[in-house]
């Protein structure tokens, strides 16, 4: 049974600059188009495109199913990739702190509740988009600003050593997949 998309196809306003477009179908059957430069930001998608042998001629006829990412997250990801597709490559960081300022546009994009941010990070991790991952991690990192250790424990839900030990014990006590 096919499911009709609930949201319209996202058309990206980059056709004039780069005629090569790809179609992506999210886990809930929403269809997105994304330009070649933008999709290259996702290592997973670009590897997939390369392995499937998609070209400018057949790309739009062969939508790529991404079953681990829903439409809402995919929309955010496509917006992000289109926004940053011409960014220069960032130098490898060598210091103990990543030195970059989160641009205002991206801060707005990532101003979502924690559950949504959590799901977006899982999607970003799956699609392997380093820049978006850095920005998401910066948003989470900013939650720690000027907080005490006890506040950090609550904000990040960090288990105590005793809780970690109990979790480890219960994991070792529980039967494995075979039995």
């Amino acid at each position: 049974m096919s499911v009709e998309p609930e949201v319209p196809i996202v058309q990206v306003e980059e056709v004039r600059e780069n005629p090569v477009l790809y179609k992506i179908i999210s886990s809930d059957n929403h269809v997105f188009t994304i330009s070649e430069h933008a999709v290259k930001l996702s290592k997973t998608l670009w590897d997939l495109i390369t392995n499937l042998g998609l070209t400018a001629e057949n790309a739009l006829d062969n939508p790529i199913p991404v079953e681990n990412v829903n439409g809402k997250n995919m929309e955010t990801i496509v917006q992000f990739c289109e926004r940053h597709k011409y960014d220069e490559e960032e130098p490898e960081y060598t210091n103990y702190i990543r030195e970059f300022v989160l641009p205002e546009w991206d801060r707005q994009l990532l101003s979502i509740d924690n559950e949504e941010l959590f799901q977006l990070i899982l999607a970003t991790n799956y699609l392997d988009i380093q820049k978006l991952m850095d920005y998401c991690c910066r948003v989470i990192g900013d939650m720690a600003k000027d907080k005490t250790p006890e506040e950090l424990r609550i904000i990040y839900g960090i288990p105590t050593d005793a809780e970690d030990d109990a979790l480890e014990r219960s994991a070792s006590d529980s039967p494995g997949p075979s039995g």
Binding site: N114, N125, C137, M143, I154, Y156, P159
Partner: peptide, 13 residues
């Protein structure tokens, strides 16, 4: 929870 479930994320994240 109202906080962010950091340790439910993959280790690399």
């Amino acid at each position: 929870s109202p906080g962010f479930p950091l340790f439910r994320l993959p280790d690399n994240v």
